[in-house]
């Protein structure tokens, strides 16, 4: 029972981190970034390839590499599409996503690459009768630390203030002197850092990485961002958390019918969109309806 709750919390935490990464970029430029999954994948690849250098150095390389790739996406593609609408940006990010998947296939091969990152996380902690995995505890702590760090950064720093301003009204923020490219660049870098954190947790759980490593969690985190409210950062993190926790709980309770978890989840998503097209914590700027 405690393990079920902890699993729900740790799943929720990890999806919350992924959704916040997507929500940060969406907030400043209305881009639903499908290619976030490939940021997670490169983080995992870098961890596995460099793990022999020792964990701290490997994590440093993974975080830096992921942030750099996020910036490359912005400069290579999205910066050139500033005037395009959200639908065009979505298709473009779909293209970037497939491009990077094939790129990883060419560089690292189509087969999974395995490696042991932090094997101690698989161990269990015993409290009297109940045992819980270390992994879920570490994940929850990591998610809490990163979410509070992001909260501090967004609420208390000037750059964070600018990101919030740009999220709620990009044009006005620009007119008031917020340097748009800098803010967008910062949002991409932070989404890259969050992607690396997600990569660390996922790769310790799975022990291997393949070109499609990040696709699944990205689709679900996207859903979380949408449910929570596109354009609202707390909403994104909460929505991601809700999706992760829901999946984990459904998996525990549906029993043999757990294969239909996604069906229920996505039907729920459609209902949420129909009732509140802007998401649960909605932001006027993204509301469009017939």
């Amino acid at each position: 029972m405690i393990q079920t709750i902890l699993d729900a919390l740790s799943y929720g935490g990890i999806y919350g981190l992924a959704a916040l990464g997507i929500g940060l970029v969406f907030g400043v430029m209305r881009l639903v970034n499908f290619a976030h999954g490939e940021l997670i994948a490169i983080g995992a690849y870098l961890l596995i390839v460099t793990i022999d250098l020792g964990l701290p150095l490997s994590i440093l390389i993974a975080v830096t590499g992921t942030a750099i790739l996020a910036l490359l996406m912005e400069f290579g593609v999205f910066k050139r599409l500033r005037l395009a609408g959200p639908a065009v940006l979505l298709i473009a990010s779909f293209g970037v996503s497939v491009f990077l998947q094939r790129f990883y296939e060419i560089i690292f091969g189509a087969l999974p690459l395995s490696g042991q990152i932090a094997p101690w996380m698989a161990g269990v902690i015993e409290f009297g009768d109940t045992t819980i995995t270390r992994g879920s505890v570490v994940t929850i702590i990591l998610a809490l630390v990163l979410l509070s760090a992001m909260w501090f950064f967004i609420e208390k720093t000037t750059l964070g203030l600018q990101i919030r301003a740009a999220s709620s009204d990009f044009q006005t923020a620009r007119l008031l002197g917020v340097r748009s490219n800098r803010v967008i660049g910062a949002a991409f870098v932070f989404s890259g850092v969050l992607a690396a954190a997600v990569a660390f947790v996922l790769v310790t759980q799975r022990g291997s990485v393949d070109p499609l490593f990040g696709v699944n969690i990205t689709i679900l985190a996207l859903v979380g961002t949408v449910i929570g409210g596109l354009g609202s950062l707390q909403g994104a993190a909460l929505g991601g958390f809700a999706v992760g926790a829901t999946i984990s709980l459904l998996n525990s309770f549906l029993g043999n019918y757990r294969v239909y978890t996604y069906t229920w989840l996505f039907i729920l998503v459609i209902i949420v969109l129909l009732v509140r097209p802007g998401g649960l914590i909605s932001n006027k700027a993204v509301k469009e309806r017939v």
């Binding site: 209305r30 639908a87 996505f266 459609i270 969109l273 129909l274 993204v286 469009e288």
Partner: peptide
């Protein structure tokens, strides 16, 4: 009933279902 991004995401959810 939906337009723009919401339509894109909702139709994507349909594909997933």
């Amino acid at each position: 009933r939906l337009s723009g991004l919401a339509a894109g995401i909702a139709t994507f959810a349909l594909l997933m279902v």
